[in-house]
Design a protein around this nucleic acid. Sequence first.
DNA 1: TTTTTAATTGCAAGTCGTTTGCATTCATGA
DNA 2: TCATGAATGCAAACGACTTGCAATTAAAAA
Lengths: 139, 139
Amino acid sequence: MCMKKDNEILKLSGLKSTPTRLSVLEVFSQYCKPINAEYILDILGKDKTDTVTVYRTLNMFEKKKIIHQVDLRKDSVYYEFSNHHHHHHIVCTKCGYIERFDDCRISEMSKELLSKKSKFNIIQSHSFELFGLCNKCNK
Amino acid sequence: MCMKKDNEILKLSGLKSTPTRLSVLEVFSQYCKPINAEYILDILGKDKTDTVTVYRTLNMFEKKKIIHQVDLRKDSVYYEFSNHHHHHHIVCTKCGYIERFDDCRISEMSKELLSKKSKFNIIQSHSFELFGLCNKCNK
DNA sequence: TTTTTAATTGCAAGTCGTTTGCATTCATGA
DNA sequence: TCATGAATGCAAACGACTTGCAATTAAAAA
């Protein structure tokens, strides 16, 4: 279903279309929450794809801005599909539960800040995540 | 000069006062920018303190909320002194240069968000860092 | 002050996520 | 269909950080 679309994404980025890349793209397009290499490996099957290939795919996708990192204070790197609508996360520091929220006045704020800061003239991205306790963990 | 104050911090946290802890505290109180274990080791001298001790000190200080992590998308963990005035950072993705800024409307925003989010009832902290290119790197 | 006790340290070794080198395989443009 | 460079898989390496354990030390108790 998404096959054609995913192929286009790769082509536009100048990347060859391979089974692993297509699978990884599909995983990203189907999951709304940040995922890491381990998660992808679990889904693709460690017998089908090598760990190294997944890491290389993630690095390449990030370089081509197909995905981007999300800073969740976890011990591995999490990514999200850049095509998804811009949003941020609230993370439970106890159980790891993640919710997303769309409210983001940061873009305006960063423009403001930029004009105040003499030593920077481009802002490429920003992190903005909330860390707290979900209802279950705060009993 | 800060000796007495640092001792108090340790005592209040129920930690024994040791040379390494006092030195690490002093480093934190004197530097306004986020620092990592390597940086501290360089200052204290690897011959004087063991790497492991520094890591353990950082973990303990974080647990006691004397310092807190800052998410800078680097390959090691950075911390700041919690006593310092609340602020955030703008990081050059090319050279690593860091500037701080105090403008933070996030606290208000998080309260708002909290009331909207059904599954969370406590926000403990937040990340908010900007990533861009400094004037030197964007020529 | 001395003793006692648990906390802290240092060393060596281990863990875990991620990367690198290199030979093999494969996608794609000619 | 072939040629060529890109992508993969394997083994090994890397770097930040942690753990186990015996030796040391701060500070509470005697």
